[in-house]
């Protein structure tokens, strides 16, 4: 039996929103420690890894590890009916052929419940090693969202380069070139406004802007985003969820042959 109660159900709704433009069918893996997701987009260019610790939940019981196979467009439709302050309860039997979702609101006294049929989803899992990256940048997630949105008018590809100078986003297209440079900035009192750049060696990689924009759907989950890069490796774009988990996106670079 699996049973989990999340006082701030909105966190789960935001997690669904953060991946639903990348993947259609997804397995949510439940274990005694956490809920987790690993999935790729249909072109296998991007990988999403989500983790939400059992400590995020007010109540968490998982007798036996199981995978909940969900169709995200359907899940998203159900979450549209969840109120902002609702508590969410998830329940599934060990057979995992259906998922019960409940949205409760003490103030209004409403309880909405849904039963969702689950699917058996065959998905390739990748072994993602825990690597030390050459560059690690922490910046406000809203700034990152604005930059990758704005650069779309210039071209399809974004060159991200981390040097002594700072972190530079560049896009080139028919109308010309745009560059946005972020310098290290720790002047603000609010830590979430800081830009910190930790660079062991300069790195420059090219990425599809379309995907970078998909990833910014996770912006409501976290005030900061962490970018990690090493030469010739997929970039990691991490949105920490308080101390309770994360949504991480990995994006394969475009490489010169």
């Amino acid at each position: 039996m699996f049973e989990a109660r999340l006082a701030n159900g909105n966190i789960f709704k935001m997690i669904v929103e953060s991946i639903r433009e990348l993947v259609v069918d997804v397995n949510i893996d439940c274990s005694t420690e956490e809920l987790s997701i690993q999935c790729m987009d249909s072109a296998h260019v991007a990988l999403v890894s989500m983790s939400l610790s059992q400590s995020a939940f007010d109540h968490f019981r998982c007798d036996r590890s199981l995978s909940l196979g969900l169709n995200l467009p359907n899940v998203s439709k159900i979450f549209k009916m969840m109120g902002r302050d609702d508590t969410m309860v998830l329940k599934a039997e060990d057979s995992a052929d259906k998922l019960m979702l409940m949205f409760e609101n003490d103030k209004s006294g409403t309880i909405a419940d849904f039963e969702l049929k689950l699917m058996a989803i065959e998905a390739e899992q990748l072994g993602v090693p825990d690597t030390a990256y050459k560059c690690s940048i922490s910046m406000p997630s809203s700034e990152f969202q604005r930059i990758v949105r704005d650069l779309q008018v210039m071209g399809d590809t974004c060159k991200i380069s981390c040097t002594k100078e700072g972190l530079k986003f560049s896009a080139t297209g028919q109308i010309g070139t745009g560059n946005i440079l972020m310098r290290q900035n720790v002047a603000s009192e609010k830590e979430e406004d800081h830009v910190t750049i930790d660079m062991e060696e300069p790195v420059e990689l090219n990425f599809a802007l379309r995907y970078l924009n998909f990833f910014t759907k996770a912006t409501p989950l976290s005030p900061t985003v962490i970018l990690k890069m090493s030469p010739g490796l997929p970039i990691v774009i991490e949105y920490p969820i308080e101390q309770l988990g994360h949504v991480k996106y990995y994006l394969a670079p475009k490489m010169e042959e």
Partner: peptide, 14 residues
């Protein structure tokens, strides 16, 4: 134009 690589070129399928 640089071609797009895929995730499985970097990480092993389990």
């Amino acid at each position: 134009k640089a071609p797009q690589t895929r995730m499985d070129a970097f990480f092993a399928v389990q």
